[in-house]
């Protein structure tokens, strides 16, 4: 890899849509950057903001949450709740100068393998441009 900055990315993907899309992308042999470390969760609505803080504080350069499209949540409304939480997270980051651009929320359904691969590419490039995150460097957290 040399001196090139390789972003460390954490993805929280819902079991029913975005994780299935990741599988589809894989079985369809679509290529996407290996920077993303996917974590399968049952619902985007089950991602407590504490997990996202943990990821950033332990050195993630970017975090992406993937859920079902609005109206398609397996648990009816989990993704709407996730969206509200992400809004809170983003607001806190903004207020405290923590670079809120490092957090993405995307809706990717089980059939959108291509969209998954493309989104991961986009996100990796986006974070690559932003450079390494400062948040995870401090050991006094």
């Amino acid at each position: 890899m040399g001196d090139k900055f390789e972003p460390k990315l954490i993805g929280f993907f819902c079991n029913w849509c975005t994780s299935s899309a990741a599988d589809l992308a894989g079985t369809s042999r679509m290529q996407y950057p290996p920077n993303i470390r996917p974590i399968r969760v049952m619902c985007s609505g089950s991602v407590d903001l504490a997990y996202i803080w943990r990821a950033f504080l332990e050195g993630a350069d970017g975090v992406i949450i993937g859920g079902c499209h609005p109206g398609d949540c397996h648990y009816v409304s989990g993704n709407y709740k996730a969206r509200r939480r992400i809004k809170i997270f983003e607001t806190i980051m903004k207020t405290l100068g923590l670079d809120e651009k490092r957090l993405w929320l995307r809706w990717i359904s089980a059939s959108e393998g291509k969209k998954f691969a493309e989104t991961m590419k986009e996100f990796t490039e986006h974070i690559r441009k932003l450079g390494p995150s400062e948040i995870g460097k401090n050991w006094s957290i």
Partner: peptide, 28 residues
């Protein structure tokens, strides 16, 4: 693991994490 990754870890750890988390949960 933490000490290895960052070179050091302040004890107690997770203090900033605690405040950020509490802000996420109750600030609204």
């Amino acid at each position: 693991g933490w000490a290895e990754k960052k070179g050091a870890v302040k004890l107690p750890t997770d203090t900033i994490f605690f405040h950020l988390g509490r802000l996420s949960h109750m600030s609204t």
